[in-house]
């Protein structure tokens, strides 16, 4: 019989389930700032030994890329870009590409705006991390998750 135990879905179960629904997105938000284990030494090296703080950098990538051969990337850093306070370097890292370093850009106070656009290759669905190093030695970072439908051909085919 299908309706043998109609009281099985108790009020308590429903409440616990609802609470679980609330906690799932929270857990995801936390993992969005996490950096892939593989990239930690590279990021430390780029940032001068320490791990950069999350913030001040915005990394804009499409959430879904049909082809990994050319994915638009925009990176922007909040900075007044004056001789006293400016962005020195921007590093772009990939979690799954055979070469994790994608590019290093050097800017200076003459840039006026700390923003660079380019197109990158991605070997599959992964996380991309941008690290900005300021002239005062502090480092900031941001990550973005990209779902890649067709990866850039790196598997020796």
């Amino acid at each position: 019989m299908i309706c043998a135990q109609p009281n099985r879905l108790s009020r308590r179960h429903v409440l616990v389930g609802l609470l679980g629904c609330l906690l799932v997105p929270l857990g995801r938000a936390r993992s969005a700032d996490a950096i892939p284990e593989k990239l930690v030494p590279l990021i430390r090296q780029a940032a001068g030994g320490m791990l950069p703080q999350v913030g001040r950098v915005s990394l804009i990538l499409p959430t879904l890329a049909e082809s990994g051969h050319s994915v638009r990337l925009r990176v922007r850093v909040e900075s007044p870009m004056t001789p006293q306070a400016h962005v020195k370097n921007i590093h772009i890292f990939s979690e799954k590409n055979p070469r994790p370093v994608i590019a290093r850009f050097s800017l200076g106070p003459r840039a006026g705006r700390a923003e660079v656009h380019t197109r990158i290759r991605l070997a599959g669905t992964q996380r991309v991390v941008a690290v900005a190093v300021m002239n005062d030695g502090t480092a900031w970072m941001a990550g973005a998750e990209v779902v890649v439908t067709a990866a850039a051909c790196v598997e020796g085919s």
Partner: peptide
């Protein structure tokens, strides 16, 4: 004559590389 943009590239940059940057 004054350098305003410098980039070091690796194989992760797409074919026919495109860059956009800002200067004063």
């Amino acid at each position: 004559g004054a350098e305003v943009f410098h980039a070091e590239l690796f194989p992760g940059i797409a074919a026919n590389p495109y860059f956009s940057f800002f200067t004063t």
